[in-house]
Design a protein around this nucleic acid. Structure first.
Lengths: 140, 140
DNA sequence: GCTAGAATCTCTAGCCACTAGAGGATCAAG
DNA sequence: CTTGATCCTCTAGTGGCTAGAGATTCTAGC
């Protein structure tokens, strides 16, 4: 161990500037430095960054990740809070999927009806110009 | 007509600061002003803002909206370009839906397996810590 | 005409989670 | 000892707004 930042980046899939950014916002601790002022990391940071990257990929916000990280440091605590963070995130994801599906339908219909002719007959332009053309009420 | 900005906002569902912002980035034209320097709008702006709002709700980026608006001003032009903007946006929406669905599965499984006990046995923390626990490869 | 309160004005700064780039220092290999 | 990759700090930019300060203007009632 004693990895330079680039190696840590390679091993975790988190980009170098992003690692420095995470240090800046206190998501990871400031690591020790070489005499020449370069950061050196150990196993702990690999784990922590993997956790962070994974949670980010699942769409958790940085503040939630902060909470989850704090929890994971206290193995004896109840996981009720972690559960509720994940639950409410799942609900949010469901909402996003629903919204996108409705939107998708609207887009597909709009494109489908476009006669590929002139703008003056184009359903894409027309639908965008007038909400009344929408089948679904996509503004939830 | 000759609507103040608040009335335009009410009629289009676009917030007052957002209207001013759109003017600033050149998405809508600077309207005439009263002697006291207040903006006054007409029918044109209602239509244009409705178009913009609608396109934003469908997730089009401002730059794409700019192009679509420019096209809509030329009724004799071919709508091929509008079609291709909408097509590629549809593809993007499809990609987002797919990604969210995979993610949703991962989240649901993670929550499901959480025994609601202590952090040391919590699957939520565990799964986040180790990508290897994932069933699906959600990093596309 | 006067006053009160709602609406408007401009301007700057903040949000999120990064990303890009300048300009310089340091490290590892040959 | 040189080369070139990597590293450093710092500032500024991204998108699409949103918030707030502090000043002005408009409108309705008296």
């Amino acid at each position: 161990m004693n990895l330079p930042i680039g190696e840590l980046a390679r091993r975790t899939g988190v980009k170098v500037p992003t690692i420095r950014f995470y240090e800046q916002i206190g998501l990871i601790a400031a690591p020790p430095r070489t005499e020449g002022n370069q950061r050196r990391y150990g196993k702990t940071e690999i784990d922590r960054l993997n956790f962070i990257r994974h949670a980010r990929e699942l769409g958790f916000e940085v503040d939630h990740i902060r909470e989850l990280l704090a929890m994971s440091q206290e193995p004896q605590a109840s996981c009720h809070q972690a559960d509720s963070i994940a639950q409410s995130h799942l609900l949010e994801v469901d909402r996003r999927i629903e919204k996108l599906k409705r939107l998708r339908g609207e887009l597909a219909r709009m494109i489908d009806e476009c006669g590929h002719g002139r703008i003056c007959d184009c359903r894409i332009i027309e639908v965008l110009a007038d909400h009344g053309h929408c089948a679904a009420d996509h503004v939830a």
